[in-house]
């Protein structure tokens, strides 16, 4: 199997996973595709090195996080997002009311807080692992996560958190 074939096999198997993480970061499925497209392009550029790391999933996830955070700084998304025709699919029944509440609450978080929440509670990473990916200290992650939870609690306080999140 050639290097390109290994890359294609790996990426094809991770698209859905990356898309879900990207969606949680940006709260928009189409935008999430843009983030993943850029992520896998960067992964290709670094494939020779990436293919040798022990935790390739972690490496790829780190690229995605950095793409997302860099975008927040540069605002390039304003011009790079092409308007696509509607997908050939019905609107998937995904979000109950409480799901939309959670999405709105997540969107209200600062990008790095949102990234911390996604890495800690969706990717199930430790404080230390999250800090490594986001390039900061574990203490910073702890305080960001605490602030994020406080914000979510405030935004979802109309009913118990469990009911809004279930």
């Amino acid at each position: 199997m050639t290097s390109d074939e290994r890359y294609t096999e790996y990426v094809t198997g991770r698209l859905e996973w990356l898309h879900k993480i990207a969606f949680l970061l940006c709260q928009d499925w189409a935008h999430a595709e843009d983030l993943v497209q850029i992520t896998i392009t960067r992964l290709y550029v670094h494939w020779r090195r990436a293919s040798k790391v022990d935790n390739l999933d972690g490496y790829t996830r780190t690229i995605l996080m950095r793409v997302f955070l860099a975008e927040q700084r540069t605002g390039w998304r304003k011009w790079v997002t092409a308007r696509r025709p509607p997908p050939d699919t019905p609107t998937a029944p995904v979000d109950p009311d409480m799901g939309l509440d959670l999405r709105a609450a997540l969107l209200a978080l600062a990008p790095r807080q949102r990234a911390s929440v996604v890495l800690r509670f969706y990717c199930d990473l430790s404080v230390e692992q999250t800090a490594e990916i986001l390039g900061c200290s574990p203490g910073t992650i702890k305080s960001q996560t605490a602030r994020a939870l406080m914000t979510l609690r405030h935004d979802l306080r109309r009913s118990p958190l469990k009911e809004r999140l279930a």
Binding site: D4, Y7, T8, V11, T12, L15, E16, H19, K20, F23, L24, W29, E33, V36, Q37, I40, T41, R42, L43, Y44, V45, W47, R84, P87, D88, T89, A92, P93, V94, D95, P96, M98, G99, L102, R103, V117, V118, F121, Y122, D124, L149, L152, L161, K162, R164, L165, A166
Partner: peptide, 28 residues
Amino acid sequence: DLRAGLRRLTDQPRPLSISVETARAKGR
């Protein structure tokens, strides 16, 4: 609860229009 809520937001597969071939071409 938050962990469960995040999973529910993404628990249905979505059609993807991401192109691996485009990524390879641009990467090259």
